[in-house]
Design a protein around this nucleic acid. Structure first.
Lengths: 186, 186
DNA sequence: ATTTTTGTGGAGTGATTAGTCAATCTTTAA
DNA sequence: TTAAAGATTGACTAATCACTCCACAAAAAT
């Protein structure tokens, strides 16, 4: 019954369907089952709500990934596990995935502090640096590797969403798409 | 002095800077140096303007690419030429590139007819089909290949924009990034 | 028990916005 | 030359929106 969360959930749904511009705060409040005043009690402005939603979603994703790297796991296995986990997360949270894409290619992006972005990507940058030091990955700039990987993932995901494969085919694609990108960067 | 074009140019600039929601039609008209009425004379609604702008940009890009496939050019060379042309177009037209990304991940996307999308991508799908028939490309679904290539391109471009490389490094990256993706799909 | 803080509602407001309209100007066609 | 069609203007409007305000309720702190 956390009203803050209800508001975020409602905002997510409406933003994905109608865009940022197409969803009035009043409808968000309505969908969340709270009053207009309550919404503005928690989020001083609509922009603040949008940014809060982005950070909320990102930390959800991060929570899915971090924490449990098995001891002795090879670097490749770690990459594969996280690659696949990200794909599954996106598959199971299509609204969150779409919102993130929408947010990242909108002017809202500039409202997020660089520190916040660094914080979110640090885990992954560390992993890539480790892989380069161990001569597993090609010694490309980290930013480039990151961009290549994430655009690959979002591309695959876009495909998974639009073409409805059965579970087996989907499984297969996820596996092979990892191999494709892994060969590319090693 | 084509007022329609002035309107589209102004809209592009403002949309990229402030987003669809953040730019009133009145400001577009102002920036374009025409009256409010003129804008609505050419575009019945704001949505229609947004869609028209997308189609306008896409046909600009298409004009950069099509038409001049040299006789006897190998399939790989064709892919490479078009890959590089796309990257250069995006590099030289950053606003158009950003707008396209923003548009594609917004609900406006659904306002475009499937025919329009097919028309835009037909050239490329034909090329890929030819490459598969010639056993050059892996026999993956065309949609998947398309998604992989375009997400790779937009990833590389994002990197080119954010990290300001000098011309030589940039040239090098463009070449190697093609090889990377080519190896992936062949 | 009493005060203070925090959460909640919802009517209200001023500013803004997409879109209209009638009047003028420009071009084209006969 | 004249008429018709199209282009252009900018004031105008009805609706909408982000956000405020104040009253009250619940919980926490004293």
């Amino acid at each position: 019954m956390d009203k803050q969360e209800q508001i975020l959930k409602a905002a997510l749904k409406l933003f994905v369907e109608f865009g940022f511009h197409g969803t009035p705060t009043s409808r968000i409040a309505q969908e969340a089952g709270v009053s207009n005043g309550t919404l503005f009690h928690y989020y001083k402005t609509k922009d603040e709500l949008v940014v809060a939603l982005y950070i909320y979603i990102k930390s959800n994703l991060a929570a899915c990934m971090s924490g449990n790297r098995p001891a002795g796991e090879t670097i490749k296995a770690t990459f594969k596990r996280e690659f696949i986990a990200t794909l599954y997360w996106a598959k199971e949270n299509p609204m969150e995935f779409r919102f993130t894409q929408q947010f990242l290619s909108s002017p809202y992006l500039s409202m997020i502090s660089i520190d916040e972005i660094k914080k979110q990507t640090k885990h992954f940058f560390d992993l890539m640096q480790e892989a380069i030091d161990a001569r597993v990955l090609k010694p490309l700039p980290l930013d480039l590797l990151f961009t290549l990987l994430s655009s690959h993932i979002s591309g695959i995901n876009q495909y998974l969403i639009t073409s409805n494969l059965d579970a087996a085919k989907e499984q297969e694609l996820i596996q092979t798409s990892f191999d494709l990108v892994w060969d590319m960067i090693t």
